[in-house]
Design a protein around this nucleic acid. Structure first.
Length: 843
RNA sequence: GCGGGCGUGGCGGAAUGGUAGACGCCGGGGACUUAAAAUCCCCUGUCCUUUGAGACGUGCGGGUUCGAGUCCCGCCGCCCGCACCA
């Protein structure tokens, strides 16, 4: 029998050790069982596990444990997304080595994950900064190169002149470097690119097959890929050049009243070459910020070049402007402007007094309708457009494209918003790009891949971070090598790969990890695709798109036979908490939940007993101090209460408000279940048909809920059956209910379940036990409650046999005194009977 | 601007078109106890000058239906993503 109270401080460690010893969670690729791959997005080892990780991994853990109970061979691995900037920042601030810092964090965080009792296959653990892992990654990068999916190109980057490094767009704040505060420059650098655009069409089409992905994520990727179809054609310029433009609205071509190019456009550069005013204007355009807010308010500015462009149909000469709202890196960097039907063109034309012709109208009769202060981008029919008049928009688009193609001055084209993926980073803490630049003056060798037998290209250990810039570049010896082709002097590539490359194939390495190659295709085929992938929605685009791309790219290289890496995706909500703060003059001072005593009346600071302001429930963040440390709450309540809280109440896709009262309630329930286990009575016999039914119905429903990731509902059902079992008298059926509750709760509260299983004399570990069987016959009740309505309003309920006929139910309903009182002698026109549910009498 | 999501008690939230508010939290009352903790029981949407198998009630206004939180149309509010993408 079980003791007074369940003590997690003893039980948690005991069972974690038992699982380790039994190697409970090591996945066997050779197993005959059907396979299930459950994966949560692996963490960046920033220092400590935070509550968001706990929620994410608890969900995955419940699934992993549940599927194992259902007889599946489960792969549930964990590792570390270990390269990245924070390690270098720590190196600069604290003078530690990024590697030492990272591995120490991994040690800490692994210990924290173990404290939560996750059913992880630690035998497959790796960090992406392990030379073994990034060496295989280098080999894959060379594979992509050999298959024409890697290239070098000069491209413009954000350059921080103080830190001497490239910054990502997110690291540029108000035009200044986020660390140095220095004015960011645009620089052209030779950078490595991956040809993700080769797969644009396929990545887009593949979204339709991902039925078990959130629609939101699919739409976000669709928008990101940004397929648009239109017409590309060239204007003949008065300068003698040809100017290619791209438009998605070829139908409005008769409404074009000017032409515009981007400031970086060759035509603009040519004009500026001998025109100082143009030069000034271009400089002005470049200075403009790129944040959303700035663009929102930015005025449309233009510079009239004096050049004109000949309209392909009318022959009219349209003025050519350099304009600040035209982007060089989309389409051709030049546009035909149709002010009547494009808002930006409208604003520009208004400002510079250019004509705004109408070429689309609600009907042909409204060809002269004036504009109401803005462009009209909607549907309609063409007007003032010669041979297009009266055609609907779609038809007119096709007609213009067909005429342009016939006359040879333009063609229908598809343009993508998706850009090739620039993967060069001028950083130390990343995968070295495995290439060598031959320094031979004849240039015959060029850039050469590192021979495979020389992989991995390892990062040097002896680096310093006391001066800005890339430590690999200034390392005294590391970069010097010889050309693999000619044997002459050569220099290693000193750029490293974007960390998103590391996370683009880690799920493959988890499934298969031979020493001599990145993975084994046959073994991958056993496990992939990942059956359930779980992570934050913040990765909806970049990581998830890159991983889909890598899977396709590797398939093209013949490395594997798979298309989509993640069959089902789930994006979980954040953990939130209210904030506590006080005004200190103009500043708001925040306090952590641990510094505050919270009651239903309000909150006071423990230090001085004076009230603090209770703020909104928002995402936990260090700056607002509304954080709880997982280790603290595990210590106070035990791993199972924390896990249970993560699953209770809020649906997993929504935000979960953390509350002290909530976790206390979960702690109480852990004890309540424990006491119920103590009620298990070997000697009890006899039936409790009602409880037996509820037990079987609960088993079926909880299974269904877990499979649908509706953990909050599964939790509610376990509460209900617990109440029922507590109230029931001892019987064999009650024992069965208790044992079933233990098994059903085991994926969620595994330590409590093991302790109870042991106390109840269960064989082996509950982690290895089977999910309870459902007796189908007991899923249906033989008596049901029938609602009786009069004109749709509830008037009575009655109990009837589940198989009662429609006629019987009608008769029973009409016999009800309450119903008769409501009908009050009125003529009955109709009686609707839904067997097993209700009777509705219509008068 | 474009795209998407969501509005249900004091709070988190349940509810194949069929008894709205399951379950949890908070709150109130009671039992046990010398007392407290722990535990257990009951109540807990609003209204009532008909306390009743009453009325009202799922953001607002319409509609479909025997029956609408759920489906349709039109609003309002909040949240998220993308964004001078031609």
């Amino acid at each position: 029998m079980t003791g007074e109270r369940f003590d997690p401080s003893i039980a948690d460690g005991r069972w974690q050790a038992a699982w380790d010893e039994a190697k409970c969670f090591e996945a066997d690729s050779a197993s005959d069982k059907p396979k299930t791959y459950v994966l949560e997005m692996f963490p960046y080892p920033s220092g400590r596990i935070h509550i968001g990780h706990v929620r994410n991994y608890t969900m995955g853990d419940v699934l992993a444990r549940y599927h194992a109970m259902r007889g599946r061979e489960v792969l549930h691995p964990m590792g570390w997304d270990a390269f990245g900037m924070p390690a270098e920042n720590a190196a600069m601030e604290k003078g530690v080595h990024p590697g030492g810092w990272t591995y120490a964090n991994i040690e800490t965080m692994k210990g924290q994950l173990k404290q939560l009792g996750f059913a992880l296959d630690w035998s497959r653990e790796f960090a992406t900064c392990d030379a073994e892992y990034y060496g295989h990654e280098q080999a894959l990068f060379i594979d992509l190169f050999e298959n024409g999916l890697v290239y070098r190109k000069e491209s413009e980057v954000n350059w921080d002149p103080v830190d001497m490094t490239v910054l990502a767009n997110e690291q540029v704040i108000d035009g200044k470097g986020w660390r140095s505060g220095a004015e960011v420059e645009k620089r052209k650098l030779n950078q490595w690119f991956l040809k993700i655009t080769d797969f644009a069409e396929d990545l887009l089409a593949g979204l339709d097959t991902l039925e078990d992905w959130p629609q939101k994520v699919r739409l976000m990727q669709e928008n990101w890929i940004g397929k648009s179809q239109g017409l590309e054609f060239s204007f003949d310029l008065s300068s003698g050049d040809k100017l290619p433009v791209y438009t998605t609205r070829p139908d409005t071509i008769f409404g074009a009243s000017f032409v515009a190019v981007a400031a970086d456009h060759p035509v603009a550069q040519a004009v500026a070459a001998d025109d100082a005013t143009a030069q000034e204007f271009i400089a002005l355009c470049k200075r403009g910020g790129t944040t959303a807010a700035e663009l929102e308010t930015a005025e449309k500015l233009g510079f009239d070049t004096g050049i004109t462009a000949r309209h392909p149909f009318t022959g009219a000469q349209l003025p050519l402007f350099i304009a600040n709202f035209v982007l060089m890196d989309y389409g051709t960097g030049a546009i035909m402007a149709v002010p009547g039907h494009d808002q930006r063109d409208f604003e520009f034309a208004t400002k510079y007094g250019l004509p705004i012709p109408r070429v689309v109208a609600p009907s042909v009769d409204e060809a002269a309708k004036p504009f109401d202060g803005e462009a009209e981008a909607g549907e309609g029919v063409l007007v003032n457009s010669d041979f297009l008049d009266a055609m609907p928009v779609e038809e007119a688009k096709a007609e213009v494209i067909s005429r342009a193609e016939k006359s040879g001055w333009g063609k229908g084209t598809t343009v993508w918003r998706l850009r090739d993926w620039g993967v060069s980073r001028q950083r130390y803490w990343g995968t070295p790009i495995p290439f060598i630049h031959c320094l031979n003056e004849d240039g015959a060798c060029g850039v050469v891949p590192v021979p495979r037998d020389q992989l991995p290209v390892k990062l040097p250990e002896d680096v310093s971070f006391d001066t800005p810039g890339n430590p690999l570049l200034r390392h005294p010896t590391w970069k010097h090598t010889e050309c693999p082709k000619c044997g002459g002097a050569a220099q290693r590539e000193t750029d490293t790969l974007d960390t998103f490359v590391n996370s683009s194939w880690y799920f493959l390495r988890f499934a298969s990890q031979p020493a001599d190659k990145p993975f084994d295709a046959a073994e991958i085929a056993q496990w992939l695709p990942v059956d359930q992938y779980i992570g934050g929605v913040e990765h909806a685009i970049l990581h998830l798109l890159y991983a889909r791309f890598w899977t396709r790219a590797l398939a093209r290289c013949g490395k594997l036979d798979a298309k989509e890496p993640f069959a089902s995706l789930f994006t979980q909500g954040m953990v939130t908490h209210e904030t506590y703060s006080r005004k200190d003059g103009p500043r708001e001072v925040y306090y952590t939940p641990a510094e505050v005593d919270r009651s239903s009346e309000g909150a006071v600071l423990k230090d001085d007993g004076q009230p603090v302001q209770i703020g909104k429930v928002i995402k936990m963040s260090k700056s607002k101090k509304n954080v709880v440390d997982p280790e603290d709450i595990i210590r106070d309540y035990g791993a199972d209460a924390v896990r249970w809280f993560m699953l209770s109440d809020s649906p997993p896709e929504r935000d979960l408000p953390w509350s002290e009262a909530g976790i206390e309630g979960c702690g109480r329930f852990v004890q309540r279940l424990w006491r119920l286990f103590g009620q298990f009575d070997e000697a009890a016999s006899g039936e409790d048909k009602d409880l037996a039914r509820r037990t079987h119905q609960t088993i079926a429903a909880v299974a269904e809920d877990i499979e649908a990731l509706a953990f909050n509902k599964a939790v509610a059902r376990i509460y209900e059956l617990t109440s029922a079992a507590e109230k029931a008298k001892p019987s064999a059926d009650r024992n069965h209910a208790i044992r079933s509750l233990l098994l059903m709760a085991s994926p969620m509260m595994p330590h409590l379940a093991e302790e109870g299983w042991h106390a109840l004399g269960g064989e082996g570990l509950v982690a290895k036990a089977a999910w309870p069987q459902v007796d189908e016959a007991l899923l249906v009740n033989d008596e049901v409650t029938i609602a009786v309505q009069h004109k749709g309003k509830l008037r009575d309920t009655l109990t009837a046999p589940a198989d009662a006929s429609k006629d019987d139910l009608e008769a029973l309903a009409l016999a009800s005194e309450k119903v008769q009182r409501s009908i009050d002698g009125a003529q009955i026109r109709k009686v609707i009977v839904v067997p097993g549910r209700l009777v509705n009498i219509v008068t």
